[in-house]
Each structure stands twice: as structure tokens, then as C-alpha cells.
Design a protein around this nucleic acid. Structure first.
Length: 829
RNA sequence: GCCGGAGUGGCGGAAUUGGCAUACGCGAUCGGCUCAAAAUCGAUUGCCCUUACGGGCUUGUGGGUUCGAGUCCCACCUCCGGCACCA
């Protein structure tokens, strides 16, 4: 038999799957729909097609495909689609550099991704393939935008955004890393621009509460989202500046410390700042400070060890609880983006306010007694963040601060000077981009009618072809005059199109629904199809999307459900976050020159080896370092299985082993059933593919060790054949081509049409066990014993052991511990 | 600083409920096959002492619980990831 030639085998089976459309599934009501089977939606995050797929893709799709195969063979109708998140910056940046249209570069990348995914043998229903950059797709992205717009969930307003001066464009928050432009490394600055937003903050509480609806998500992903949403309960309290007659509300989580407020701080961006200081002696100094802060980058302002700075305003506000006048400051440690952009400062109980008070010589007052002055920063134990009895707080003195909290809020509400309030770190989702390569926002501006949505029957608003992609502070689309100038859909008068495009996260927030009905030209999806397949039963992807993509998709699902278009509240019932593959301990990057191209390994060792290796290198949820020797090792194992198959094919007849297997035949049969049990359990217990694969390796190793002694008798020969076919069946989810080939050669059947094997429980237990004998907890002997031997017999065996005897000599046995079927521990003195 | 994850051979990593530590793979050493090499098949491979027989030690560190701890409890150290002046 020829040596293992993965390419031949892989091409053979890929052709079968493509011709027979093996992995295609029908929707309810369509021909071929099988209503007897339960459905399972297995989905990997769709790739952004840029250049070639990398090892992260290989791992993601290898893991997802293994799950899809496993579920199919458990009787599920598995939907397993594929598509491309094809709008985005890299293609556009390439266009700016080379002039090549983003569409062309993108189509080329898609072609390369599609080819490689087919070469990997991923079991995809290709009839559902989609690209988010096609008018057939983004027409419905625009429709979703309009749905949100009509319900007030999409709105336009002026807001500070991150601006990269070098690229002359706004950046998404996620494109700003440590205050710098991800692309060119330039420090970003804030600018105020008219922007479109989605009202995700309306859903903050439901996004938190509905974690309860999820079946299985990694705890750390939920925690990251929880932190991102950043819900804080507290109170809004109004401080009044009598001099100019203005109210300043603040948000605080500690209304119980109100009596300790000794000053008041506004953010440098606070809109009332100019009015407050107009005509005061300090006006110039305040303006200089504000300008200085405005010029600073986010990186400088967020620096870890930054000293507290600020300027007094020469104004004061009145503390509503005690009528005290406290001085106002402007300081950059107060952020305009959070709360009201103003704080009451309680240096006695807040470390930041304390630092500021120290720097400016402001009074520090204690209003809660601490218990442990020892651990505190200054002699009086301040600032003290903990609980305790109230002091210096008027009628609240002596009460517990938790109790005072409630009463203080009630009292403020009755005086109309405050109320309980909840604040979030989460901001509304800024979805407009001054970019070309995205879905145009379907809005028209008319002098007469204002902001007018493009009617559904005029969708899609197609992205026009342009010549110059360079950003100039506006979307490159603004230069496409013919396209911008349009008619108002409402009055028919002259109007101008919105020239911003949508954040690509919008595209990828609903693609998993479009897969369910991808060719529908009448609607974004058929409700019955969506109801049948949703939610996604198993979602797989990199943990780098733990917050943004997953939260946006959750939000959009809820919004669409509220609008009556979906019947689920959560899109992804189960989430598996795969770990990142590194090379020489470092993240792969072109600049480091440490990238691994899956194509090279597929070419050299075959797709089965590459796929199996990424599943074998360690627990898939953890990262791992790519090692060429590791791929070779897996390739050796698959070659071994291949050679075993060839030999078994020649030397044995097709047969099921009988009941009466003895000796080595029985041992090998038992090992095969152990392997079935082990692989099945590893799948069910969180996709522990590394140990599943090692179990198949053990089975193949045992077959090699025992085969020569078994070929002679028919029972033994049948057992070797069974063991080899079982190994093929179990490795199939990881190495589908070789699994199919070996299984077909040995059984004449197609492995994916066979149900997943079930272990015979009788073969999982053996008649004898190795009894471990310990003296004082230390291993002294191992003895073969009957599996169900009673306690006395095991003790007798243990005492009879020569190796044990010398440790008992002259000692008294004070305790005998017997774990039936496992061990005896003799405790001596 | 806060939140999460992890520390086991030369390396990646295994270890049901507290019961044989180091499965499987890599690497290394030796042997069969070969004129030779590759491939392959087989053997050995945690550390220390010992010619050997055998013995001792070992899961980041230090304590504890237990007949028995990689696993449970307490304290600490290190590394990785996320968030970070969020009032």
C-alpha cells in the first residue's frame, strides 16, 4: 500500500462532499427538510477576509467543525454556514496606497479564503455563503438601521469622537489603543462632530439581566461585559451656584458621605465652565488650563501616575444637606463622559479627592468612623472607603452609613434636591464612520423636510464607485457629487445623501440571522426560518471579541425582538472562546516576521494534520505556542493509522468481533470501547480535544503492539479491524478525510452517515484491578486483585506482600484504609 | 489598584469524587532494518544517591486539614489576559 498521501485522499473526499452537497440543510417547508431531527446551529465567527487565512482561523474552524461533525453523528440536523465580514479598513487603506478598488482586493481575499476553507475540508453549507459587502446583504443592514431609526433607537447628535490628525479621520474606540491610532501610532485627539448613534444604553439593564438566559458562556467573558457596561447605583444630587443661579447635578455612589463634601469639581469640557468664570479675575487661568488639557492626548491624560492638577474657579456651590458653601474647581481627573461631568469631592472618603485636597491644601473631613486606623494613610485614618457609623453628619450621626445612605436619598428626594439614580460606563454605540468601504447610512437631508429616511423600496443605497479614497476629514463619498445630490423621498425637492457609512460591527451583528435565509430578496429573513434555527447553539470565536462584537450582537437581537422580527432575546446560547496561538511565545505579526501560514502546512502535511494539531496542542480555550515538531508528530500519528489500515485491510476480513474475545483480543476490544468513552466524554466536557486525540493515539498504539499476535485467529483479526475502524471513526471530527478513507476501506461505509459509536459498559470494567498498597500513605506494592474482591481479601493480599512486610516488621497496625477496587493503606506505628 | 486565568519533567501538556503524579505528543539516548541516510519498527527517558539490589525526593513558596493533597483551607511569590482617575 502506498504511503500516506494526504493530498490525494483529501481531494477525493472534498470532491464527494462538494458534488453530493453533503453538508447542506434545508429550511422548514423546503424540499429535503427533515423535521424528525432536532436542530443544532453551530457557528464560528465569520472571518474578515484580508490576504490569507492565518492559524487563528484554522483553529477556530477546526474546533467548530469537530463540534459540527460530532453533533451530526448524534442525530442533529446541523446548520453550519460560512461568510465574510468584508467591509473594513484594511481594504480601504490598501486602496489609498495603491488605488485598487476595495471591492476588487476584497473579492480576491474572499476567493483565497474560500479556496483554503475548502482545502481544509470544513463541513460548510456553501449554499448559504454570504459577504457583508454585497448590495444583497447591506440592503438589509440598511433596513435594520431604518428600523432602529423609526423607533428612535438610531439618532444623530454632536459628540466628542477620537480623531487621528495624521489620517485625518475619526476612529472607532476599538481602533484607539492606549490613546494612539492603531494604524499609524499617532496620538489621537477629541473632536466634536455630528454622529449617528444606536441607543444601546437603553438596553444596559437587559444586557446585564439576560446573562441568566445564557446556557454556557465563559465566566470571564460575562465579567468583561459586566465591567464594560459598568452599572453603578447611587444618587443624583443637585448643588446650586447662587452667584450665577445655576444648578449642578452630580452623580455619586456615596450619598452617605454628603456631609463630607468640602469642594466641588467640574470636568474641563463642562459646558457651563465659560459662563461660570466669565468676567472673573481667574478667567484667563481657567481658559489656559482648559486649552492645555484639550491639547493633551488621551494617553497623557490617562497616564497611571499622573499628578492631580486643576484651577480654582472663584465660585462656590451650596451643599444641599447642610447649606455649606464649598469652592468650585476645574480639574482633569473629572471626566465629562461619565455621570454629569461634575462631582462633589469628599476627600475624607475618596482617595482621588483626597489627593486633590492634599495638592491644593483643602480641608479633609471625616463623616464615617473607620474601624482600623492602623491601615490608613494619615493619622486620622483618611481617606476611609469602608463602612461604619456616621459622624459630623447632623441628624445622621450614630447611624450606620448604609442606613444613612437610604435616608439621605429619601430626604433629598423630598426636598427635590436629588433622587436615587443609576449610571453606566457604557456609552451609546457610535455607528457612523467617515469612510468609504462600508454600508452607506440610508438617510437623506432635505432643506424642507429635514432628516428623511430612504424608503424601504429604494434600498439598497448603493455604494458608488469612486476614484480617490483618501480621507480628508469627511467621508470620501462626499466627493461623489452625482451620488450625493438626490431627490427628497418625501417632497421630491433637491436633497443630499448622508455620506457617512456604518461601522462594520453593524454588519457582523446580524449575519448569523441572514445565514438562515440568505437568498431572500423580499425580507431580511423569513420569520419561520429564524424561529426554527435560532438561537445559535454553539458559537465559537476568539476572546478578543468578548466585549464589542458579542455585546453589539446581543443588543441588536434584543432590539429586533422588540420590533417583532425575532423570537429570541439572546443570539448565542453557548459560547466557546478559543485561545490565541503564538509563535516563539509572541503574538504573530508581520512586523515580527513570526507568522505561520496554514497553507504551507496544509501543503506539506495535509489539512488533516494541520487541523488535528491545532486541536491537540493544548486545551482549545487556552492559547498555545505553534511548534513545527508538533505538526510533524500529529502527521506521524495519522501516517501510523494509515499504515495500520493498509495492513489490516490485507490481513483481516471485514467482521464484527464476537462476544467471546479473550486475552489480547479482549484487551484491544476493551481499549477501543475505552477510547469511544473517553473521546465522547471529552467532547461533552467542554471540548477537551487534546485529550480526546491522545486517547485515539493510545488506541492506535495498542493496536500496533497487539496486532501481530492477533492476525492468526479470526476473532483476533476481527478485533484488530474493529479497533482500527473505531480509531478512524473517533478521529473523523478532527481529520475528516483520513477518517472517511480508513473507515470506508475497513467497513465499506461512510463514516459521517454512521451514528457516533457508543461504548459497551461491560467492556469498560475489567475483572481484575491493580491494587495499590500503601504503608503510611507511601506506595509500597502493586498487586493484581479481583475487581470485586471484598475488603478482607484485599487486606489479606496486602499483608501477604513481601515488599510490604518489611515496612510492617516490628510495627503495630493502627488503622487499615481500604478503597475497594483501588487501594489499601496500612497505617503503622 | 481592581477583576479574571495559570504555575506539574528538557518542552507542549495529562491526572473522574481527595486514592498509582508525569497519560499522549515533542525532544533525547540505544537497538533492529539499510552499503548508508531518511523513513519506519522496538526499547529507555522526572530528579538525587547507589556498580547493583534498593532507597530518598518531587506538582511556584510556606503553613494547615486528612490514613492519604497536584486536587481542599490559610498566607505569600511569579507569570499571562482584561479594565483602569468611572465619582
Amino acid at each position: 500500500m502506498a504511503s500516506y498521501a494526504p493530498k490525494t485522499i483529501e481531494q477525493k473526499w472534498q470532491a464527494v462532499w462538494a458534488e453530493e452537497k453533503t453538508w447542506e440543510v434545508a429550511n422548514p417547508g423546503q424540499p429535503g427538510f427533515d423535521e424528525s431531527k432536532p436542530k443544532s446551529y453551530v457557528l464560528e465567527m465569520l472571518p474578515y477576509p484580508s490576504g490569507e487565512p492565518h492559524v487563528g482561523h484554522l483553529k477556530c474552524y477546526a474546533v467548530g467543525d469537530a463540534i459540527a461533525h460530532f453533533r451530526r453523528r448524534h442525530g442533529f440536523e446541523v446548520i453550519h454556514p460560512m461568510g465574510y465580514d468584508a467591509f473594513g479598513l484594511p481594504a480601504e487603506n490598501n486602496a489609498i496606497k495603491t488605488g485598487e478598488a476595495p471591492r476588487e482586493a476584497t473579492e480576491r481575499s474572499i476567493e483565497s479564503f474560500r479556496r483554503q476553507f475548502r482545502e481544509w475540508g470544513i463541513s460548510v453549507d456553501w449554499s448559504r455563503e454570504l459577504g457583508t459587502h454585497t448590495p444583497e446583504y447591506y440592503r438589509w443592514t440598511q433596513w435594520i438601521f431604518l428600523q432602529l431609526f423609526e423607533r428612535g433607537l438610531a439618532y444623530r447628535t454632536e459628540a466628542p469622537v477620537q480623531w487621528c490628525p495624521k489620517d485625518a479621520t475619526v476612529l472607532a474606540n476599538e481602533q484607539v489603543v492606549d490613546g494612539r491610532c492603531e494604524r499609524c501610532g499617532t496620538e489621537v485627539v477629541q473632536r466634536n462632530l455630528e454622529q449617528w448613534f444606536f441607543r444601546i444604553t437603553d438596553y444596559a439593564d437587559r444586557l446585564l439581566a439576560d446573562f441568566d438566559l445564557l446556557e454556557s458562556w465563559p465566566e470571564h467573558v460575562i465579567t468583561m461585559q459586566r465591567n464594560w457596561i459598568g452599572r453603578s447605583e447611587g444618587a443624583e444630587v443637585v448643588f446650586r451656584c447662587e452667584e450665577i443661579g445655576l444648578d449642578f447635578p452630580v452623580f455619586t455612589t456615596r450619598p452617605d458621605t454628603l456631609f463630607g463634601a468640602t469642594f466641588f469639581v467640574l470636568a474641563p469640557e463642562h459646558p457651563e465652565l465659560a459662563r461660570l468664570v466669565a468676567g472673573t479675575p481667574g478667567e484667563e487661568e481657567v481658559r489656559e488650563y482648559v486649552n492645555r488639557i484639550a491639547r493633551e492626548s488621551a494617553e497623557e491624560r490617562g497616564a497611571e501616575d499622573r499628578e492631580k492638577t486643576g484651577v480654582p474657579l472663584g465660585r462656590s456651590v451650596v451643599n444641599p444637606v447642610n447649606g455649606e458653601e464649598i469652592p468650585m474647581f476645574v480639574a482633569d481627573y473629572v471626566l465629562m463622559e461619565y455621570g454629569t461631568g461634575a462631582i462633589m469631592a469628599v476627600p475624607g472618603h475618596d482617595s482621588r479627592d483626597y489627593e486633590f485636597a492634599r495638592a491644593f491644601g483643602l480641608p479633609v473631613e471625616r463623616v464615617i468612623e473607620g474601624e482600623d486606623p492602623e491601615s490608613a494613610r494619615d493619622a486620622r485614618g483618611l481617606p476611609y472607603p469602608g463602612d461604619g457609623p456616621m459622624v459630623n453628619s447632623g441628624r445622621f450621626d450614630g447611624k450606620g452609613n448604609r442606613e444613612a445612605y437610604e435616608e439621605m436619598v429619601e430626604w433629598l428626594a423630598s426636598e427635590d434636591r436629588g433622587r436615587s439614580s443609576v449610571n453606566y460606563r457604557l456609552r451609546d454605540w457610535l455607528v457612523s464612520r467617515q469612510r468609504y468601504w462600508g454600508a452607506p447610512i440610508p438617510i437623506v437631508y432635505c432643506d424642507g423636510c429635514g432628516t428623511v429616511p430612504v424608503p424601504d423600496d429604494q434600498l439598497p443605497v448603493e455604494l458608488p464607485d469612486i476614484e480617490d479614497y483618501a480621507p480628508r476629514g469627511k467621508s470620501p463619498l462626499a466627493a461623489a457629487e452625482d451620488w450625493v445630490a438626490t431627490e427628497c423621498p418625501r417632497c421630491g425637492g433637491p436633497a443630499r445623501r448622508e455620506t457617512d457609512t456604518m461601522d462594520t460591527f453593524v454588519d457582523s451583528s446580524w449575519y448569523f440571522i441572514r445565514y438562515l435565509d440568505p437568498r431572500n430578496s423580499e425580507a431580511a429573513w423569513d420569520r419561520a426560518a429564524a424561529d426554527h434555527w435560532l438561537a445559535v447553539d454553539q458559537y465559537i470565536g476568539g476572546v478578543e471579541h468578548a466585549i464589542l462584537h458579542l455585546m453589539y450582537a446581543r443588543f441588536l437581537t434584543k432590539a429586533l425582538a422588540d420590533l417583532g422580527h425575532l423570537g429570541v432575546q439572546e443570539p448565542f446560547a453557548n459560547l466557546f472562546a478559543q485561545g490565541m496561538i503564538t509563535r516563539d511565545g509572541a503574538k504573530m505579526s508581520k512586523s515580527k516576521g513570526n507568522t505561520v501560514s496554514p497553507g504551507d502546512y496544509v501543503e506539506r502535511y495535509g489539512a488533516d494534520s494541520a487541523r488535528t494539531y491545532v486541536c491537540f496542542m493544548g486545551p482549545p480555550e487556552r492559547g498555545g505556542d505553534w511548534a513545527d515538531e508538533g505538526v510533524e508528530g500529529v502527521n506521524r500519528f495519522l501516517s501510523r493509522l494509515w499504515r495500520l489500515c493498509g495492513e489490516v485491510e490485507e490481513r483481516t476480513e471485514a467482521a464484527e468481533p464476537g462476544e467471546g474475545a479473550q486475552g489480547d483480543a479482549r484487551a484491544l476490544l476493551a481499549k477501543a470501547h475505552w477510547g469511544i468513552e473517553k473521546v465522547t466524554r471529552d467532547f461533552e466536557r467542554g471540548f477537551q480535544f487534546n485529550t480526546a486525540i491522545s486517547a485515539v493515539m493510545e488506541l492506535v498504539n495498542d493496536a500496533y503492539r497487539l496486532k501481530d499476535g492477533l492476525y492468526g485467529d479470526p476473532e483476533g483479526a476481527a478485533t484488530v479491524r474493529f479497533a482500527t475502524a473505531t480509531a478512524a471513526s473517533l478521529i473523523f471530527p478532527f481529520a475528516p478525510h483520513l477518517g472517511s478513507e480508513v473507515f470506508e476501506r475497513l467497513t465499506g461505509e461512510r463514516v459521517w452517515e454512521r451514528a457516533w459509536p457508543v461504548a459497551d459498559p461491560q467492556l469498560l470494567v475489567s475483572d481484575t484491578v491493580t491494587l495499590v498498597v500503601q504503608v503510611n500513605g507511601k506506595l509500597r506494592d502493586r498487586i493484581e486483585a479481583g475487581a470485586d474482591a471484598p475488603r478482607e481479601e484485599l487486606l489479606a493480599l496486602a499483608r501477604a506482600s513481601e515488599k510490604v512486610a518489611k515496612y510492617l516488621d516490628g510495627k503495630e497496625i493502627v488503622k487499615e484504609v481500604v478503597v475497594p477496587g483501588k487501594l489499601v493503606n496500612l497505617v503503622v506505628r
